[in-house]
Design a protein around this nucleic acid. Structure first.
Lengths: 156, 156
DNA sequence: GTATATACATAGCCGGGCTATGTATTGTAC
DNA sequence: GTACAATACATAGCCCGGCTATGTATATAC
């Protein structure tokens, strides 16, 4: 009998949090997950306004402002004013940002490799499929707003 | 042609970071991932010394001290002195801690459910298998130390 | 032209992460 | 058995990422 989906999701997030620490520990990452996550969104989606970036990254607008500032300070993003609306500035990933992101993923993969080196081919395929599933869900859910996600009747 | 394992691992961590934000956002979680991660480790492993907890959680010893203090303040852990060694105190999860952890997983699962509700059975099974794989690797790697993981030749 | 709405920035708080260091206890040399 | 080294944990102090509340400038409505 399969476990309830909601329980599986709980397990998923739990193992996720532990994997996050393992990755940070393994990779000696001097930058934070937030930096790479933001860069990943920018690369995937292209130049975007700060507010949209916040929504897609699932952080608040002030947090997005901070992250973009840090990224700009490292030369990994740039901002171009919107000629149609002076309040808006579109943030883009720079070539240096793309390179840094690519390099991070390379280093991370290599650092985790020892822990997964003997993984059977079937398991590797499972991993790939699951990554695709999750990416799809994260992207797709991204358009919705908060109240859609937080099911009613779930106590805060 | 399958992607290189190291690239898959990079993708895994990337989607992981985004999923973490989605979960936090969806669940309105007032506590931090670190709190739940620490509780999970304690529940899985049983009473343990602070140093071991730090290793298994993949955080530094001072960070473990902080987390355990917060957990104790909430009544979710207790510490018993080791009669054989006065320097040591074993930290255990309390019944209240178990209940809080269980409740968190329930709320989290429910909050994420809308985003995954229409997942095909095959994908659900993929998720379950993958969770098992990751849990196994995280647990197994946990015994090793840092230098084993950080592959030589990978620039810091 | 004034009021409201929008896009982003700033201020200020707290928790989680780290390194460096302190303190108490244990173990060990002799 | 006393002095020294090693161990287990605590403390100090830093930075970043997360948030809410609020400010400021621009755009829009009328």
């Amino acid at each position: 009998m399969p476990a309830a989906l909601s329980e599986i999701l709980g397990d998923l997030i739990t193992v996720n949090h532990r994997l996050t620490r393992l990755a940070a520990y393994a990779a000696h990452d001097s930058e934070s997950p937030a930096i790479w996550r933001t860069l990943s969104v920018l690369r995937q989606t292209g130049p975007m306004r700060l507010g949209d970036l916040a929504v897609r990254s699932r952080v608040s607008q002030p947090t997005a402002t901070k992250l973009v500032s840090h990224l700009a300070a490292r030369g990994w993003t740039t901002r171009q004013p919107d000629p149609l609306d002076a309040r808006v500035a579109l943030t883009s990933i720079t070539p240096a940002g793309e390179a840094a992101l690519t390099d991070w993923r390379r280093r991370l993969g290599l650092a985790l490799l020892p822990a997964f080196a003997d993984l059977p081919t079937a398991d590797i395929e499972t991993l790939e499929r699951m990554i695709g599933i999750l990416r799809d869900r994260v992207d797709r859910t991204e358009v919705g707003d908060r109240r859609e996600l937080a099911a009613d009747g779930v106590p805060a």
